[in-house]
Computed example of a mutant assay.
Amino acid sequence: MDIVTEVLAAAGRDDRPALIQLLHPYLHWTEGGRTLRGRTNVFARLAAGPPPEPAASYELRDGQIYRWTAP
């Protein structure tokens, strides 16, 4: 399973411990032209729904997603 699929699955089951392992603390998360910075802000966005779109591109840092860009 690739890391994008793992993030989507963990977000879908609201598995914060898994997301902590997958998402870099200084994450840049872009969806629909809006960018959030920091894992805590992304957790708030995921909790508010809807489910995230799959990343069109992403960048890894230290084995975690550092940049997530979705349409």
Rank of each mutant, 00 (worst) to 15 (best):
M1L: 11
D2N: 08
D2I: 04
I3T: 10
I3R: 00
I3C: 02
V4K: 00
V4A: 06
V4G: 03
T5E: 14
T5R: 06
T5S: 12
E6I: 08
E6R: 10
E6Q: 14
V7Y: 02
V7I: 13
A9C: 10
A9Q: 09
A9D: 15
A9L: 11
A9R: 08
A10S: 08
A10N: 05
A10T: 09
A11E: 06
A11L: 01
G12V: 00
G12W: 03
G12D: 10
G12R: 00
D14F: 12
D14M: 12
D15K: 01
D15F: 05
D15R: 01
D15Y: 02
D15L: 09
R16T: 13
R16Q: 14
R16I: 15
P17G: 07
A18L: 04
A18E: 01
L19F: 00
L19T: 09
I20Q: 12
I20Y: 11
I20V: 14
I20W: 05
Q21H: 09
L22W: 04
L22A: 02
H24P: 06
Y26M: 13
Y26L: 14
Y26P: 05
L27M: 09
H28F: 12
H28V: 10
H28D: 13
W29H: 00
T30F: 07
T30Q: 12
E31Y: 07
E31M: 08
E31N: 07
G32Q: 12
G33D: 08
G33R: 12
T35L: 04
L36D: 04
R37N: 12
R37P: 02
R37F: 13
R37W: 10
G38T: 06
R39D: 09
R39K: 10
R39Q: 10
T40S: 12
T40C: 02
T40R: 10
T40I: 13
T40F: 08
T40Y: 10
N41E: 14
V42M: 06
F43Q: 06
F43G: 05
A44W: 13
A44L: 12
R45I: 00
R45A: 14
R45S: 08
L46S: 02
L46Q: 00
A47H: 06
A47W: 05
A48P: 11
P50K: 05
P51W: 05
P51Y: 06
P51V: 02
P52E: 10
E53Y: 08
E53A: 15
P54H: 05
P54S: 03
S57P: 00
Y58I: 04
E59V: 12
E59Y: 09
R61P: 07
R61E: 05
D62A: 14
D62H: 15
D62Q: 15
G63M: 11
G63C: 07
G63D: 06
Q64D: 07
I65S: 07
Y66G: 08
R67Q: 14
R67P: 02
R67D: 15
W68F: 04
W68K: 00
T69E: 15
T69P: 00
T69I: 11
T69S: 13
A70Y: 02
A70K: 07
P71W: 13
P71D: 15
